[in-house]
Amino acid sequence: MAQDHDHRHDHHHNAPPSDTAMRVKALETLLSEKGLVDSSAIDAVIELYETKIGPRNGAAVVARAWCDPDYKARLLKNGSEAIAELGFQGVQGEDMLVVENTDSVHNIVVCTLCSCYPWPTLGLPPVWYKSAPYRSKVVRDPRGVLEEFGVELPESVEIRVWDSNAELRYLVLPQRPAGTDEMTEDQLAELVTRDSMIGTGLVEAPTS
């Protein structure tokens, strides 16, 4: 946790800290006291994931794949290498598999054993991705989970659930929405949501 407490946000200072906050504090104190980590290194990690590494990286990958068929072919063949072409690589993205949504296949990603997630392209996972209800239900009833996210797909579309239980990390390549032919790569990247790259959402064309 950052040493400099940020007081711009709104919370009650008299409320007891959550169990997670307590556990993190205890772990950080132990690691510091044993001389294993420098607390400014923890700040550096947080800074990195707050400002540099997040789903905008994945969106750039998706937009490039939509605009450049050769890049898309490389991306589907060797995800890690093609993603590294755009400068995204490293921890939790060492061995990437990019799975493509089509008119007949929809992919959705989970880690049933913990919270494995492709950090270089999507950043840190949202809370619901790590929650037991999502992890246990999506393998058994993916259509029900999709419905909870407001996505309804016909039975003719095969749902593929990818359990990233071990070595591979998965990025969903969502379908490019219709009516976006005139848009630039940068404009397209703006449309791509985090959830569409996990598979719990679809990319929508701009409404105006």
Partner: peptide, 21 residues
């Protein structure tokens, strides 16, 4: 000297740690 210091964070995160052998 701590094992994890500020100056090595960037390299560690970018380098990763694949279990490929």
């Amino acid at each position: 000297m701590p094992l994890l210091t500020r100056d090595i964070v960037g390299g560690l995160v970018a380098g990763g740690a694949s279990c490929r052998m």
